[in-house]
Structures are given as C-alpha cells and as structure tokens.
C-alpha cells in the first residue's frame, strides 16, 4: 500500500479521494477503513498479494539496490555513456515522486558531458509515476513525434 501511494501524485490523490468517507456518514473511530483512500489502498494491497509472490518484490528490490551503472565505469555515469551513437530522449513527469525531474536531469547532464545526442522534456501532469502507463496525451505525442522524426530521418538515409 505504501508503495502504491508513490505511483500516484499528491494532487491526483487529493482530487480522487480527499477526506471522503467510505460508505458512512461519520467517523467510526475504529481501525476499519473509514476513508475512501484507505479502502482503495486496502483493495490494491489485496490485489497485489493475489497477483505477485511477495518474494519477487524482495528480489526486485535487491536487484535495484545492486544496480549501479556508474560502478563498472570508474569515471561515473559520463564514462558509461561515452562513444554512444544512440539518439537519446529523456522524459520526466512533473509529479513523479520516484524518478524525479531532478534525477532525470542528472542523467541528461551525464549524457551531455559524454557528448551524446540527447533531448529532454518534462511533461506537466498530476498522474504521478504511473503517467507512463496511463493515457497522458502530451507524453504519447512527444514519444510519437520523436520516433516518427527518427523514422523519416533513417528512411531518407536509406538505413531502413
């Protein structure tokens, strides 16, 4: 449940739930789900337990902890991105608490320092970390524009 909160944004949660009560007129002053947000998170919690083995979360968490791209390149991230022919597009979501704009910009700085071809855009949205999974027109338009323009470029160069 705690994890689930981090996929959403403060504004999104406030608009959806606020302090609305769950099928009752007043506080129950108990440990039941008085608030709609509690009920929603409990539901999500149960759904997660049904869908995933709890151990898989442990393994994924450890895998993430051990992942450090800069570690194998002693010069840090910049060293990792050296001599890349790839054209990069980095996108961040303004309300993402997990992969913040600041951290994405750090990646862009490293890409720039390595002299790669990089674009960066921040999508203003209140859909939080989940923005990349849901219908976020600005995000989809940006990705489409980027891929389309690359397609045309490669076609002109007769590489495809």
């Amino acid at each position: 449940m705690v994890g689930h909160i981090s996929y959403l944004s403060e504004k999104g949660m406030q608009e959806k739930f606020g302090r609305k009560l769950q099928e009752r007129g007043d506080y129950d002053f108990s440990f039941n789900a008085d608030f709609q947000v509690e009920s929603y998170l409990r539901h999500q919690g149960f759904a997660f337990v049904e869908r995933f083995d709890a151990n898989s979360i442990l393994y994924i968490t450890r895998a993430m902890d051990y992942f450090d791209l800069s570690r194998q390149y002693k010069g840090g991230l910049t060293e990792a991105f050296k001599n890349q022919q790839t054209k990069f597009l980095v996108i961040s979501f303004s309300s993402d608490w997990l992969y913040t704009t600041k951290e994405n910009k750090d990646t862009v700085i490293a890409l720039n320092a390595a002299g790669t071809d990089v674009s960066f855009a921040e999508i203003k949205t209140d859909k939080g970390h989940d923005s990349f999974l849901v219908d976020e027109p600005e995000f989809l338009k940006t990705i489409k524009g980027f891929i389309d323009s690359m397609h045309i470029k490669f076609k002109n160069e007769k590489r495809i």
Binding site: N112, S119, F120, A121, T142, F146, S149
Partner: peptide, 18 residues
C-alpha cells in the same frame, strides 16, 4: 518553454528543456 521543446522534438531536433 515546454511547448517549444516538444515542437523541436517532433521535428527530430535535439533539444533540452531547461
């Protein structure tokens, strides 16, 4: 400007918002 950055990306230009 965000909208300018997106226009550039649509055109295939490499632009950083900042």
């Amino acid at each position: 400007k965000e909208e300018h950055v997106k226009k550039c990306i649509y055109k295939g230009l490499s632009v950083i918002e900042g």
